[in-house]
Design a protein around this nucleic acid. Structure first.
Lengths: 231, 231
DNA sequence: CGTGGTAATATGTACTACATAAGGGCATAA
DNA sequence: TTATGCCCTTATGTAGTACATATTACCACG
């Protein structure tokens, strides 16, 4: 197998050069960049090309530009960019993202116990009560499932985690729909939300993680034992 | 506090419209998009604006374009985009990313134990031996530290995790440098790499996670108990 | 049937022109 | 002194034209 040769456009090159320029110059957010016309002149390309490259950096949040003022560096807006890309329809290997969700759910536990506040337990219990009020309603049940986990992510105080949770939701839901076998989700041993709350209340990190792991076991059980292209 | 009004450019609008268009039409990778001139005519904007929007989508990997052939949808290239954004210099709140690294390191354990293969232990031991050969060499020590954790990420078989590990490395290193207190990293109770390997060999998931948690305790100890803007 | 040349076509690049917002400066007035 | 309003300058935003170039499809030819 031999890879096809793909020649890059000037916009690609200029974009890379600009990022490199920003890095090398140790620019920080707030610093001013050269004007478009200056860049075009120095790089010896048309202003059009420069604008395409800058447009990309603007989308990343790396530069902000306003009329007359010119362009200034800004902080990269990771959530905004992720929001543009992470859709089941657009992502080539959704398996990676599905697994990421599982990893996050179990990995955030220490952060959760470090940052949890009193109202968390109250919020979670309210969700569970709403869930248990109408046991048969699948739609409501799913809403509560999402609400429960969202509350937990929010309690970590990490906005990036919250963002991921929101965006990975569809991948998770797809998987749930794909291998939906009611008996597998209703095994007697599988911990429910009440058990998780109890572990939270007790402040027992290890126990909470163990319970959450079992709570997610239907998903873990379906993971392929080997991924292509290992090592 | 009142937020400043910021009017969006046509390129922003067209970009959003195109993404929306792709979603609504249930396009899949490989499908063809309308020509630039057609889009410009239908949207009643100049081809320039359309090209800026398309240039952004190209960077995300969502569309590929070749001369004469037109444009086709492609899979979003998450690693490529992350590689452009995730630098300590560019990211506004590095704390989020620093915490993400901790979350991943502890969350990937189940995936690791599901996918680990024989050669992993061998590779890790080789790294540890190299590390122990020259105990005083801080530079080599750090290299081995990175190599050890990289091998673990790779063993999960998840390319996205590997990507994150690579990109989050600088944030981790900054933190290590910031509060570097040799005694805190050399506490007698802190598990080293050999302990982790042993737990891996035993196949003891819980023990491995416990050890890794303690291995990372210097970082956890410095986490702020509360993040701004909670709830 | 395979090979090679040729025309058609959509993207890539350059250039010009003008619209528009935003900052600076100045004058005037409270 | 401070505030208001006007004008001028300037850099980005948008439109439009022109042409280069790669790549495909087609056709002729061996």
């Amino acid at each position: 197998m031999i890879a096809p040769i793909r020649q890059s456009t000037l916009a690609d090159t200029v974009e890379a050069r600009l990022r490199q320029f920003i890095r090398k110059q140790r620019f920080r957010p707030g610093d001013a960049l050269p004007k478009e016309t200056e860049l075009a002149a120095q790089l010896k390309v048309s202003r059009n090309v420069v604008r395409e490259a800058l447009s990309r950096l603007r989308m990343l949040g790396i530069v902000e530009s306003r009329r007359r003022r010119g362009m200034v560096l800004a902080g990269a807006d990771i959530p905004a960019v992720l929001r543009r890309m992470i859709h089941p329809q657009l992502v080539p290997d959704s398996q990676d993202l599905f697994e990421l969700r599982l990893v996050l759910e179990l990995g955030l536990v220490d952060l959760l116990f470090l940052r949890r506040q009193e109202f968390l337990i109250r919020d979670l219990e309210r969700i569970v009560r709403r869930e248990e009020a109408v046991p048969g309603d699948l739609r409501l049940n799913q809403q509560c499932e999402i609400a429960f986990h969202s509350a937990i992510y929010a309690a970590t105080g990490n906005t990036l985690l919250v963002c991921f949770q929101e965006l990975l939701q569809p991948f998770f839901r797809d998987a749930r729909g794909r291998h939906f076998a009611p008996d597998r989700f209703a095994t007697p041993k599988r911990p429910n939300h009440r058990h998780l709350i109890e572990a939270l209340r007790q402040g027992d990190v290890e126990e909470y993680r163990r319970l959450m792991r079992q709570h997610l076991s239907p998903y873990f059980d379906d993971l392929p034992r080997v991924r292509s292209g290992v090592r």
